[in-house]
């Protein structure tokens, strides 16, 4: 089938197999930040945004994104790098394989929740698994980042 999908502002006018998932579509066109960690929508590694809302691209048919705007980590590079520095300041990225999906969820959370409590944060991000860190370093990075609000200084949305 034919789809028109906008990825990070660039329009892709493509023929795709009907059963292609958004994850495969994105990786095919070079958005390699998008990782697959499971087959059952449990790990959060493949988190991207469709119209600004986080979705699991492994189980989101590419066809559903027809006519929509998709954002991957590559599309929010500077904001991701800004939060990424809080992660690396804690050593919390470890193997890094879950980092892009986690960061996309964190940036979405920042847009969605105002002054979230610890519990709200934990629940919002519960679907993003990490096997290396035990999450503690991620939490420290998040606290520091939410506290500093660098996006205000950097004039981001």
């Amino acid at each position: 089938m034919k789809v028109k999908i906008t990825v990070n502002g660039m329009l892709y006018n493509k023929h795709i197999p009907n059963d292609m998932m958004l994850l495969e579509f994105l990786r095919k066109y070079g958005y390699v930040s998008v990782k697959r960690g499971c087959d059952t929508s449990n790990c959060g590694l493949c988190t991207v945004w469709v119209e600004g809302k986080p979705v699991l691209s492994c189980s989101y048919p590419a066809a559903r994104a027809d006519g929509l705007n998709v954002t991957t980590l590559e599309g929010v590079k500077e904001e991701a790098a800004s939060f990424g520095r809080y992660m690396t300041a804690q050593g919390a990225e470890q193997c890094g394989y879950c980092s892009p999906g986690f960061i996309m969820a964190v940036l979405a959370m920042r847009r969605e929740l105002t002054d979230p409590t610890e519990e709200e944060i934990s629940n919002y991000l519960a679907g993003n698994l990490c096997r290396c860190s035990g999450y503690a370093g991620q939490t420290r990075a998040l606290r520091a980042w939410l506290n500093d609000k660098p996006w205000e200084k950097e004039g981001q949305a």
């Binding site: 390699v32 930040s33 998008v34 990782k35 991957t72 980590l73 590559e74 590079k77 991701a80 790098a81 939060f83 990424g84 520095r85 992660m87 690396t88 300041a89 050593g91 990225e93 193997c95 890094g96 394989y97 980092s99 892009p100 960061i103």
Partner: peptide, 18 residues
């Protein structure tokens, strides 16, 4: 010391390094 990982920026930046 608490030195950041050398590859930290690439990993958190979603680079194609795997």
């Amino acid at each position: 010391q608490a030195v950041p990982k050398l590859d930290g920026a690439a990993l958190t930046g979603g680079k194609g390094v795997y």
